[in-house]
């Protein structure tokens, strides 16, 4: 078992629990979306190994994430 992957998984679980608890307190939507963006980046970087690929793929997926999150924050 890879310790780094286990640490990332535990961090993802912690962030998910935090967003669930924060949502009950009706925090700003941008905070919840920010947490989602962090989780998205961690899954793509560590589980999908994007951090070790060509920068093109990192920029492409990161750019799409930014467009979606910015669009949701702007529309919400």
């Amino acid at each position: 078992m890879n310790r780094a992957l286990t640490f990332i998984w535990l961090f993802l679980i912690t962030l998910t629990t935090a967003s669930w608890l924060l949502a009950e307190r009706h925090v700003l939507p941008s905070l919840l979306l920010g947490l989602a963006a962090v989780k998205f980046t961690l899954v793509a970087g560590w589980f999908m190994e994007l951090r070790r690929t060509h920068r093109f793929w990192q920029v492409a997926l990161g750019g799409l994430l930014m467009i979606i999150i910015t669009g949701v924050v702007w529309l919400a």
Binding site: E49, L50, R52, H54, L64, I68
Partner: peptide, 30 residues
């Protein structure tokens, strides 16, 4: 267990096609 560093190659883990599909799916769901 870590994957090899592919930062010099255009080919991501799993190959180009699956990553094009990922991009397409993210755009569609987005």
């Amino acid at each position: 267990t870590a994957c090899q560093d592919r930062s010099d190659s255009w080919e991501p883990p799993g190959g180009l096609l699956i990553w094009l599909l990922v991009m397409l799916e993210v755009v569609t769901f987005g």
